[in-house]
Write a protein that binds this DNA or RNA. Structure first.
Lengths: 221, 221
DNA sequence: CCTTTCAGTGAACAACCGTGCACTCAAACG
DNA sequence: CGTTTGAGTGCACGGTTGTTCACTGAAAGG
């Protein structure tokens, strides 16, 4: 937070900065400004002019980096899922202990939701309300997730009695619960830790119910 | 300079129509136009002028009926939940047969999703992306739903081993699955009946897994 | 019958929007 | 070194937006 040439005039000069480094910096500023602007409203209510202003460039300068705001949106989707993949890696690193894997996974989900708030919100919102292209990209990302989770489930000891369809359906269900949990965390009241505790507890119970269901699956029909 | 009032657009005159009947008709036209306009984009991308144009009135005429588009949104939320309550009534009228209640409920959900497409889409979208007021209204409606479902579950024969928290959490989980299923149905490709069949099958299996989980709940810890 | 009411009108406004075009001027290049 | 490149500029354009205000004219009410 050293620089930032306050209002009116831009960071016109940064002495020893290479040309492409500056370009990257402006690109980043556009991405951040779009993410922030989408935070109040949605991607389709964001105006190019506002983004440009907040990024410290003139409106037409925007086109040196992206050809449309939708393109910025797609880039933000990529970034968000990169962070989600990191989360999955964290989950997998957790102890493969049977009962605590749920606690751990939910905790990691919640922590990431807080640390990547803007990106999580972006995904949650644009998943249903965004431009078609963006929606498709998000849906695709979630499907990849689901498939990864399904192969993880297949490695479980109890997986013998599960068909591949069972696996797909379970993974879908778990992802649905996780998405819903993340949404709840994101618009939980800020200054109320007990509200979040209840969301976490609910998610844990739900996942536990699903696990119980899965464990007793096919032993009955 | 005779009459230039031809405009071609709107039914300016309807001979034997009472004054308030006409007002209601215009109000309805505004609601429908808003619902339609929100269909491409979202409520916050809808412009008052477009709505007015499509409703056959001049922009300023809008204010005779609503003071803002958000107010129209709240009215649409009410309408949507009225239709959802009708759906719940249909579900309850179904056979209380244990295994087919799932099939029946999902079928009714899907049918309603098709018949009330615009309203369902509206709820699904504005639930996460709408103006704060609208989001709160939707969340409140879903909570009422959840509580009704919980009391229904409490009447089940197997409910002995479920705490009230268990009931709440189960109801929450089931509603989450239903919402997710409705969303899937809504943006399933139109001309592909087998895609919808798979969505239905997935939903049925998921609910069945939850039921199995619930049935074996608390018998283990 | 005359009077009141009020849904709908039409012009005007200031603010914002996306984008095309010709430009500058410093870093990168040969 | 001189030349080329390209990120960022400035202006101009036509368009849409929400909201104000004074208005009209027919149905409702006495």
């Amino acid at each position: 937070m050293a620089e930032q040439q306050v209002r009116g005039q831009q960071v016109r000069q940064a002495p020893g900065e290479t040309r492409s480094a500056r370009k990257d910096r402006t690109r980043r500023a556009i991405l951040d400004a779009t993410l922030a602007a989408a935070g109040e409203g949605s991607l389709s209510t964001v105006s190019l002019r506002r983004v440009a202003r907040e990024a410290g460039i003139v409106p037409t300068g925007f086109y040196r980096h992206f050809s449309s705001l939708d393109e910025v949106g797609l880039t933000l989707v990529d970034e968000s899922f990169a962070s989600l993949r990191q989360m999955l890696r964290d989950v997998r690193r957790g102890s493969p202990d049977l009962s605590d894997v749920i606690r751990g996974s939910v905790a990691i989900l919640v922590e990431h939701a807080h640390r990547q708030q803007a990106h999580f919100r972006f995904i949650a919102r644009e998943r249903v309300s965004g431009p078609p292209e963006v929606r498709v990209a998000i849906r695709h990302g979630l499907e990849l997730f689901e498939r990864e989770l399904a192969t993880d489930l297949a490695r479980l000891p109890r997986s013998a009695s599960w068909s591949s369809e069972d696996l797909r359906v379970m993974a879908d269900l778990i992802v649905t619960v996780m998405v819903s949990t993340a949404e709840s965390v994101l618009d939980a009241p800020v200054g109320r830790p007990e509200a979040e505790r209840e969301i976490v507890r609910t998610a844990e119970l739900q996942l536990r119910m699903i696990v119980v269901g899965a464990a007793n699956w096919r032993s009955r029909d």
